[in-house]
Design a binder for these strands. Structure first.
Length: 571
RNA sequence: GUGCCUGUAGCUCAGUGGAUAGAGCGCUUGCCUACGGAGCAAGAUGUCGGGGGUUCGAAUCCCUCCAGGCACGCCA
């Protein structure tokens, strides 16, 4: 289903064209039309300021233009009336019978409700998380994970075919240190002489990996080369990472190893192409990318004096690879700490002769955990470091998804642990899920009592239900806008708004009453309406990667977690 | 110092050049033997950080100043 603003814009555009055709308005290029629900209900259901927008082009007073547009409006099933208001707004009223009938559309569409087709036939790739497998995921990383995964969900809802991808390097210096750390712990566990690396990873998870290796391989790895430990450590950590991510419904389609870019010669090809195109030069024993030629403030090293590439070079080769795969849209999700490098990589792609305009970058600011009104410091050195699993154990997976999503990526986030833990109405997670639970409760109770919605007459629905339906029908435009602007928080804000509208309606508009028997026809219409509401809430929760429970379970009070004082991390 | 992000109600935050600036929490006052009270109704609260500008119209766009965060590597 197309967003209503798109439908309205088509109608108004047609009206302008009609007026121009019969000479009522002079000919001028029709600008982009923005038709949205106004803030105040007396201004109609959808409002257009087109007369104000084109007053100069049309060289007429806005009120007069508005009248002309209204007189030339083509018929549309969803429009009941168009009113003119000073200084020149056109306020549309939705056809209430059409609105009520949308209940049937929602029920027929089911879990694909509000599916759009703008992206049909197009392929999108979303890259997110992309942490190297050196340790558990940090809460900062998972913010990007939730944002990226939600964008991917929204792109699917727009009709795109989406690849969710994780890019990693398990061959770098950090991985060598990790391998040496695991080897040392393994040998230690067997009582063999070992030397723990100076900057080694001290986290408890290293001991756990070593213990697993000792259990599986006994002492047969005691002479194994470092490469073997690197491979085993990488596998083991990925196993844990994937499990952690799965707990918050993050499942990637592809894991892309940086190593493959070297093995397949893509890195060498990139160097050769940059040289050939005059974008690379040698200086002081290093190879530089002449990014200033494309507007960068200074040139960047791509191969160090030591002969090793900097991270930029494989990143360029990787992005070239993405574009070679023919995606129509590529989305990169990075934390603010990587903000400066993203444009450099795109300049590299440009230097290779590609058009990077299909690449969209989402940069998100830092995450700070707040508890008792105070920031909880996440120093990696002191080991007071909160990782994803710990956070999920503490507040629950749904709360992690929601809170990480609900703030604009541009906002430095305060993750309020007390609020996320709370199981009351103040917690938006419960407020939204409770709307779904209440719909499910109505379905259960009516089934028990044999109340049916067969042959429901939807014209019996009242103003409360229709107002809520109108709000539900804003979902397509919220999805479209979230994708167009790469602002996935819009869906979270909208879901909370909708839940806020739902609860008072639930209270007033009853299907079952112990005091007075509702006429069966009225009960049928209302039941059908709540069935549709349940579908919509389920869809919104699914888009956010959250569960849509039929019954609320109080979560057990989490056991106090023993502090893992040795935990450390580095990326 | 330079670049990016941010500054909106007591708090946490939404806000797409449109009409009288929004939500949740908190606060005040009531209600509630009914589909799960994780509820309902009403109310108070704002120099949209300051100052200029563009526009018929600015929280939104431009300039400038102030305050905070992040980044400024031949680390990733």
């Amino acid at each position: 289903m197309k967003p209503l603003p798109v439908e309205f814009a088509a109608v108004v555009r047609q009206a302008l064209a009609n007026a121009q055709a019969d000479g009522s308005l002079p000919t001028f290029p029709i600008p982009e039309l923005k038709i949205d629900p106004p803030k105040r209900p007396e201004h109609g259901d959808y409002a257009s300021a087109v007369a104000l927008q084109v007053q100069k082009l049309a060289s007429k007073p806005p009120m007069q233009i508005a009248e002309i547009v209204r007189a030339h409006l083509p018929a549309a099933p969803f429009i009941a009336a168009a009113e003119i208001a000073a200084p020149g707004f056109i306020n549309f009223r939705l056809n209430q019978a059409w609105l009520a009938a949308q209940v049937e559309y929602i029920l027929a569409a089911g879990d694909r409700v509000f599916q759009q087709d703008d992206g049909a036939g197009k392929r999108a790739q979303v890259e997110y998380v992309s942490a190297n497998p050196t340790g558990p995921l940090s809460v900062h990383r998972i913010r990007g994970g939730v944002l990226g995964d939600t964008i991917a969900n929204l792109l699917v809802a727009m009709g795109y075919s989406v690849t969710r991808e994780y890019y990693y390097n398990n061959a770098g210096q950090q991985m060598n240190i990790l391998a040496a750390s695991v080897q040392a712990r393994y040998l230690e566990m067997l009582g063999l002489p070992n030397s723990f690396p100076e900057k080694g990873y001290k986290g408890q998870y290293i001991r756990m990996i070593a213990a697993v290796l000792a259990a599986i391989y006994s002492d047969t790895l005691s002479d194994a080369p470092m490469e073997r430990f690197r491979q085993l450590a990488s596998e083991s950590i990925f196993y844990r990472l994937k499990n952690s991510m799965r707990r918050v419904n993050i499942v990637h389609d592809e894991f892309f190893p940086e190593q493959s870019l070297y093995e397949e010669g893509a890195v060498e090809e990139t160097i050769a192409a940059l040289r050939e195109r005059g974008f690379a030069y040698e200086q002081e024993g290093a190879l530089w990318f002449k990014s200033t030629a494309l507007g960068d403030e200074k040139d960047r090293v791509i191969v160090k004096r030591s002969g090793e590439p900097t991270y930029r070079l494989p990143d360029m080769a990787y992005h070239k690879n993405k574009l070679d795969r023919g995606f129509d849209l590529v989305v990169d999700v990075f934390g603010a700490d990587h903000a400066a490098t993203a444009p450099q990589v795109l300049l590299g792609v440009k230097a290779l002769g590609y058009d990077p305009s299909c690449v969209r970058t989402i940069i998100h600011q830092m995450v700070e955990l707040v508890e008792g009104g105070e920031a909880r410091r996440m120093s990696t050195r002191r080991g007071d470091f909160v990782e994803l699993d710990e956070l999920i154990d503490d507040v629950g997976a749904d709360a992690v998804r929601y809170f990480m999503l609900a703030q604009s990526p541009n906002t430095a986030m305060n993750f309020d642990l007390d609020l996320a833990r709370s199981q009351g109405d103040e917690n938006p997670v419960y407020r939204i899920q409770n709307a779904h639970v209440r719909c499910a409760g109505i379905l259960r109770r009516t089934a028990e009592r044999g109340i049916s919605d067969a042959n429901a007459d939807l014209t019996l629905l009242g103003g409360d239900e229709l107002a809520l339906l109108k709000k539900m029908l804003e979902t397509p435009e919220v999805i479209a806008r979230a994708v167009a602007e790469m602002q996935p928080q819009a869906i979270a804000i909208f879901a909370l708004d909708l839940a806020g509208m739902f609860h008072p309606v639930y209270d007033r508009v009853r299907v079952i009453s112990d005091q007075e028997e509702l006429p069966p026809a009225m009960a049928a219409a209302r039941l059908r309406f709540y069935k549709a509401a349940k579908v919509v809430f389920a869809r919104l929760l699914a888009l956010m990667g959250m569960s849509a429970p039929d019954e609320m379970e109080r979560r057990a009070k989490p056991e106090p977690q023993p502090a893992d004082a040795e935990t450390s991390a580095s990326e």
